[in-house]
């Protein structure tokens, strides 16, 4: 079994059901669970503005060419401009998305991609459908699209409903570095903790938090860390100095991390797996 996946680490730490969740969970026919981050109205509006600007630039360039050509053959030039305008307004998004695997220049710049509901690339006819409905979605000021996006869980505008598509964020694929090793920090004394050990996910969250602690000021960092520190102190039945948890929650989290990380790394794998209720789910069944 695979634990429910959310892209928001806080929901994992607190195990509360997410109220608004940008995560989209797709189970492929090969039983691989993939998660995507849905793109909200703001990102999509940004991508649209870039596309719109590009369309305007192209149209202006074409109009400039036509203006020059108009001295030779005004009607032919004007006719071609109209054809170009038609192609731009009805086929720009459609053809880019269909031929460039769900991206337009604006979506590419913002890091968005259109995919089908089930995770595979957008098909030609779905791209046509979702972009032809722009004619209705976009009038006035994309208001119908916006209302539709608010009314369903996957931020679909009407065109997305028709084409069975969703727009997802593409994060940059960067292999994370090794976990932070906090050499100078002492583990908590064993006689001060007696409760259930923290989950691996919680440790991973602490690792990430400590790795980025320099991004906020120290008091702010303590403020952010305090709720988790208090919850962990309760879970571990921590009986040591209470001011460590109250006043220096970051330090407490670091010590918890070091305590259990060291234990993790030192123990042989059999005991570790046996002691862990979650098993690796490696059901991958395609040839």
């Amino acid at each position: 079994m695979i634990a429910p996946v959310s892209t928001n680490p806080l929901t994992i730490a607190s195990a509360a059901p997410p109220i608004v969740d940008l995560g989209l969970r797709i189970e492929t026919p090969e039983n691989v669970v993939l998660t995507y981050t849905l793109a909200g109205p703001t990102l999509r509006a940004g991508a649209y503005l870039i596309d719109f600007a590009l369309q305007m630039v192209l149209l202006t360039l074409a109009a400039g060419l036509v203006f020059c050509a108009a001295f030779v053959a005004p009607n032919i030039a004007f006719g071609l401009l109209l054809v170009f305008w038609f192609a731009l307004s009805w086929w720009y998004f459609t053809l880019f998305e269909a031929l460039w695997n769900g991206r337009t220049p604006g979506k590419w710049a913002v890091g968005l991609r259109v995919i089908q509901d089930k995770g595979y690339p957008v098909t030609f006819w779905a791209a046509v459908g979702r972009n032809f409905l722009r004619a209705f979605d976009s009038w006035p000021f994309y208001a119908p699209a916006f209302v539709s996006m608010l009314l369903n869980r996957r931020f679909k505008r009407l065109g997305d409903l028709l084409g069975r598509t969703v727009v997802v964020c593409e994060r940059n694929v960067v292999l994370p570095r090794e976990p932070v090793i906090v050499e100078r920090i002492d583990p908590l004394p064993r006689d001060e903790i007696s409760g259930r050990p923290p989950e691996a996910r919680t440790l991973s969250l602490i690792d990430q938090f400590l790795g980025r602690r320099h991004l906020v000021s120290i008091p702010r960092g303590h403020d952010i860390a305090r709720p988790l520190a208090l919850a962990l102190a309760k879970q571990l039945r921590y009986s040591g100095e209470p001011s460590l948890v109250e006043d220096y929650p970051m330090a407490f989290l670091a010590r918890v991390y070091v305590t259990y990380l060291r234990r993790d790394e030192e123990e042989p794998e059999t005991t570790r797996w046996a002691g862990n209720a979650i098993r690796p789910a490696a059901v991958v069944t395609f040839p």
């Binding site: 695979i2 634990a3 996946v5 892209t7 680490p9 994992i12 492929t28 691989v32 669970v33 993939l34 998660t35 995507y36 695997n101 991609r113 995919i115 995770g119 595979y120 690339p121 593409e170 994060r171 694929v173 960067v174 292999l175 994370p176 976990p179 989950e199 691996a200 996910r201 991973s204 969250l205 690792d207 990430q208 862990n276 979650i278 098993r279 690796p280 789910a281 490696a282």
Partner: peptide
């Protein structure tokens, strides 16, 4: 995912797999 090792590693692999799938 099963081990809950690292959220960033998980999201890295998730992105690789979803791009590959795509």
């Amino acid at each position: 995912r099963g081990h809950g090792w690292d959220l960033r590693l998980e999201s890295y692999l998730n992105d690789l797999a979803s791009r590959g799938y795509n």
